[in-house]
């Protein structure tokens, strides 16, 4: 028995390179959309399994480099060391929405207020026109693409306060905001649903129009990263399909914006 398992180990180890199918890994913000793309693409190409793993942007980049995945998914820009070895292909654009509980009377904040809240300088909703309740600040974990995009666009040069609650996925942040009347969080615009309320920033609502027009301030690219050597065959075709007309249509339907043509 043990020998059989050991043999199988070897066999699988060798057979891995020849495995059919496509593995994507990376940003959990991108994961649900990639699953949708994969579903639709697979409907067209039956028999071609596509695996969509989470793990986060950085893990996605690393997976693409190491070959653990053909395509890495990143929801942040690449740092120079990474972009030297990988091609980054924008597959969508995403707004980051600042969300609160639907029962929260606050509808609009300025960017500097959001920054002060996240830095721990404003600790009560009444200072920004809300109820007298201390703010439960919710953030993503260190290393998340959404967090680093949020930090770059909102909190820099300040640091997110240590007292902020940390959740490790967009869905978990949304869930927490939906259940806590005093919470504030930030999530991918495409994943905002009725359980939370997206704030407008200085009167600009996070909607497709404003994101497209560039008036909404928090927009980031969603990237697929691939080593140049692997950008052919199935991965190439999959990416071309996503940025092609069918893919763009689906992207819009799911609440993201397609990349600029």
């Amino acid at each position: 028995m043990a020998v059989a398992v050991a043999l199988q180990l070897v066999a699988v180890g060798c057979g891995r390179a020849a495995r059919r199918g496509l593995t994507l890994a990376g940003s959990t913000s991108l994961q649900p959309f990639a699953e949708k793309w994969a579903d639709a693409y697979q409907a067209r190409h039956p028999g071609l399994p596509i695996y969509v793993q989470g793990g986060g942007s950085t893990a996605g980049v690393e997976a693409a480099l190491s070959g653990a995945a053909e395509i890495g998914m990143a929801s942040r820009l690449l740092v120079p060391v990474e972009s030297a070895r990988l091609m980054a292909i924008p597959v969508a654009r995403d707004g980051i929405a600042v969300v609160v509980n639907p029962t929260n009377p606050v509808r609009d904040l300025r960017l500097d207020q959001v920054r002060a809240i996240y830095a721990g300088q404003i600790r009560n909703w009444r200072f920004v026109g809300g109820r007298n309740a201390s703010i439960a600040v919710i953030t993503r974990e260190e290393g998340s693409g959404t967090r680093s995009a949020f930090e770059a666009m909102v909190t820099d040069p300040l640091r997110i306060a240590a007292s902020a609650l940390v959740q490790d996925s967009t869905g978990a942040v949304r869930q927490m905001v939906a259940s806590d009347p005093a919470a504030i969080g930030y999530v991918s615009f495409g994943l905002v649903d009725a359980s939370v309320k997206a704030l407008s920033l200085r009167g600009v609502e996070p909607n497709e129009l404003n994101i497209d027009a560039g008036t909404y301030p928090l927009v980031r690219p969603f990237l697929f990263v691939v080593t140049p050597a692997r950008l052919k065959g199935v991965p190439r075709d999959f990416i071309d399909w996503i940025v092609g007309p069918e893919g763009r249509e689906l992207t819009r339907r799911e609440g993201l914006l397609p990349p600029r043509a």
């Binding site: 989470g54 986060g56 893990a59 974990e141 260190e142 290393g143 490790d168």
Partner: peptide
């Protein structure tokens, strides 16, 4: 009543996302 992080939670939260020194 304060939120806190344990050693195990640190691993589970950040493991998949980390690279290099992190």
């Amino acid at each position: 009543l304060d939120p806190l992080r344990t050693l195990t939670a640190n691993l589970a939260l950040e493991m998949g996302y980390a690279t290099g020194d992190h």
